[in-house]
């Protein structure tokens, strides 16, 4: 699946430090909104959306720039959540170490799953990642420390670096925002580095990239591990915010949800996954009383996006403005 939105920029556009101006502006707008938002909107909702936005950006790294659709990214989100929650609750890790530990768990899992999955492409890849995620799910159901159906509850948030008390909602919000922005910028940097260019080359024409001397498998594996790591960062942060790590985050429906967010926002766009995540989260929030209808609405969005709206919100917007966003 190739990205459609960032391909039509021909001549080099005006840029700040190598970043095209529209993207700098968009980043400024996004940061301003997110910094002001907790004073207007319920902060816990925002934090949830930020965690999912980072999750979707990590997922987009793989689908948008390597062309690999993973249907098992919940495994990384969930495993990191369990890692962070367990280390914070049972071993008394401070939040920064708990998040690091959770992220490391996801990275290690990414190496293991990636090494096997990366050998396949397209539908096979989607199927294989889904199956591995299901393995992680059943492991989480049965392993003792995950608490089975109950999950790991009342995880202590603690004090970040011994200074910031994360039990204060606003402090926590800005920490989550900082984590999100750091993750977002790192992913941006990875995509727009020579490494990212090689990834795109592999996506467009793998045999040619190989013939030019690039070890495609290694690049793809590295991209997979990066994607898993950032998904893990999102999961670990989410576990501390909600003080909960549960089976919901490992279930395959979560893997489907991140696909939905990214597709709706715009595959292969820089800001699409963020917008998609916020829209999906807002929808779920408003529709939560309607029970099974949430699933129906998600399904309808999938169908509409695939049939008529394949560029996604940001992709369409970028196309309209003739800018790459």
């Amino acid at each position: 699946m190739t990205a459609t939105a960032n391909e039509y920029v021909g001549a080099p556009a005006p840029a700040v430090a190598g970043v095209p101006i529209p993207q700098v502006v968009a980043f400024g707008v996004m940061t301003t909104i997110l910094a002001a938002a907790p004073f207007l909107v319920y902060p816990v909702f925002l934090m949830k959306a930020l965690c999912f936005a980072l999750f979707a950006c990590a997922f987009n790294l793989l689908i948008g720039y390597v062309g690999l659709l993973s249907f098992g990214h919940a495994a990384f989100l969930g495993a990191a959540g369990y890692g962070a929650a367990h280390s914070a609750k049972a071993w008394g890790f401070p939040p920064e170490l708990a998040i690091l530990f959770g992220t490391a768990v996801a990275a290690a899992l990414g190496v293991a799953i990636g090494a096997l999955a990366i050998r396949s492409k397209g539908i096979y890849f989607a199927n294989i990642t889904l199956a591995f995620a299901q393995m992680v799910y059943f492991f989480s159901v049965q392993a003792g420390f995950t608490g089975g159906e109950d999950g790991i509850q009342s995880v202590p948030r603690g004090t970040l670096l011994g200074v910031l008390n994360l039990n204060e909602t606003l402090t926590l919000y800005f920490v989550v925002l900082a984590i999100f922005l750091a993750g977002f910028l790192l992913i941006y940097r990875a995509i727009h580095s020579p490494f990212g260019q090689v990834l795109k080359a592999i996506r467009e024409n793998e045999p040619r990239a190989v013939s030019l001397g690039y070890r495609a498998e290694r690049y793809k594996l590295l991209a997979f591990v990066l994607s898993a790591t950032f998904a893990g960062l999102a999961g670990a942060t989410k576990a501390l915010v909600f003080q909960l790590a549960s089976l919901t985050d490992v279930h395959w429906t979560m893997s489907g949800e991140v696909v939905l967010m990214t597709l709706l926002g715009g595959l292969g766009t820089v800001f699409g996954p963020v917008v998609g995540a916020f829209i999906v989260m807002a929808l779920e929030n408003y529709l939560s009383q309607l029970g099974a209808w949430v699933t129906v609405v998600q399904g309808v969005i999938f169908v509409v996006c695939v049939l008529t709206f394949r560029r996604g919100v940001i992709g369409e917007l970028g196309n309209l403005l003739r800018k790459s966003l």
Partner: peptide, 22 residues
């Protein structure tokens, strides 16, 4: 790309299962 077919059928699965569950 055939992956769009997968996403479309996934969407239909959600719709059908959601309606029956409702």
């Amino acid at each position: 790309d055939h992956l769009y077919g997968l996403l479309l059928t996934f969407g239909f699965a959600l719709i059908i299962q959601g309606l029956f569950r409702h």
